[in-house]
Design a protein around this nucleic acid. Sequence first.
DNA 1: AAGCTTCTTAGAATTACGAG
DNA 2: CTCGTAATTCTAAGAAGCTT
Length: 508
Amino acid sequence: MISNNYKLTKTKILSGLQCHKKLWYDFHQQISKDNHSIHIGNRFGEEVKKKYQVGYGKFKDFTGPFDSTKVKDTEEAINSDNINVIFEGAFIYLDTLIRADVLIRKKNGWELLEAKSSTKLKSEYIEDIAIQSFIVKKCGVNLTSIKLIHINKDFIYEGGDNYEDLINDTNDITSKVILKEKEVSSYIKDLIPLAVEKKSPNISMGDHCNNPHTCDYQSRCKAIEPKTNITSYEILPWCPKKLKKYCLEKKIKDLQKVPTDLLVSQREGYVQDYHKIIQAAHKCNKPWFSPDLKNAIKEFNFPYYFMDFEYVNQGVPIIKGTQPYYRLPFQWSVHKWESIDKKIKPSDEKPFLEFDDQDIERRFVESLLKAVGENGTIFAHNAGPVEISILKKLKEKDNCKHLVDKIDKLIERTVDTQVLVGENFYHPKMNGKYKLKEIIKAIPSDVSYEEKDNIAGGTEAQLAWFILTDNKTLKNEKELQKKLLTDYCAKDTLALYYLVKHLMDSYV
DNA sequence: AAGCTTCTTAGAATTACGAG
DNA sequence: CTCGTAATTCTAAGAAGCTT
């Protein structure tokens, strides 16, 4: 018996398993944000489809928005005697719709394959796939095996659209999934009532907000959280689990109520006892400067350069010689501060912004080297994991080998301002965060990240790259995205200037 | 989505020690 | 000397939190 009506989907069930309130919002006031992982997934999905379109016989592709004919057509394909592969087949059971990425006909039944654009099996996938297999089976399909398809991290793109080795489809998870299938019907029974529930469930924020997926409704939940004047111990960066446990047991929320001698966490890039310093700064509501800051500043040499990269994790690499999730730099911005009495200005070299030139990495470094000249301190925020590690990877590239010495010199001149701040500065307005966007809120500047319709962070810069390398994107949209990227990256380097200037001014 | 780095934790390996 | 148990130390894998 086939039904064409449904209330739930697999995605909605997963929402509900994470948080009932999230699902309630999905039902009643849904927002769906575009993000770069969706683009990675889509591009990987394309390659998966290409792979199974050859060598298996006839296939049917039901890709596209759901409509009621798809359930019937899927069933026909299953019952046919000549269709061997089905993409995006639709199945409904217990008011729940699922779409199966790939179904392959086997001797006595079908194999279900689910494509994920990660590089390995993750525990949450089992639940995800169990929902599908449960429903597919209940629709009368004999599923004989279940596999996960994921990205092979070691794949190197050699050009010519050859992605054969990108796809890893050797991960058989049949038995793991079967164990979970039993629970699916109770998930559905629990979650369906939320579709007609008038009021949103009363659930306060917590770890579930970002686990396993970042929830897009957090601003709504935050708005109705009870307001307090106290600063929670939870703002402490790298707050140790032990401390969390202790505070939970003692019912402590206020950072000031945490015994100071328990704040013992140490971390590279942060001053000794930085948790104690944070606590003290919030207690007296005053910024903290280390006594060593003066010496640190003495090490800097004019001209100062402020440097920022944007990179993209491609997922499916499109540049020859690159790997999945390899950090492909596609933009830099540099501001130059000649000397203390001069004004800050953009680098003489035009900022770099390219997307899919096969020689993008060489062009990126060559122009960057010109922009930062030979002398002077280069500042970059969180430079270690981003700018410096990207430059180190570039050194290994054939088309950049001739620049190795110059890249090394650049790296030597680079100062990580996140470490500089971590070791020397804290302001209560930073609220326990050391990212540039938080620090800038605490110091005088005319940089604001709060403007509407802007690129607000690195993930959105990555999204822009995907939009710009998508051949379906219209020209106007491309121009807009380029402008947004240019503004965003320059904003970061300018913010960097205000940060360094503030640290210097505090000692004049 | 990944990388990076530390912190946590489960399990293995080692040690200690009394009993047979 | 071996065995069983318990306590301790070591190690490796995973999680957490921060970045793009």
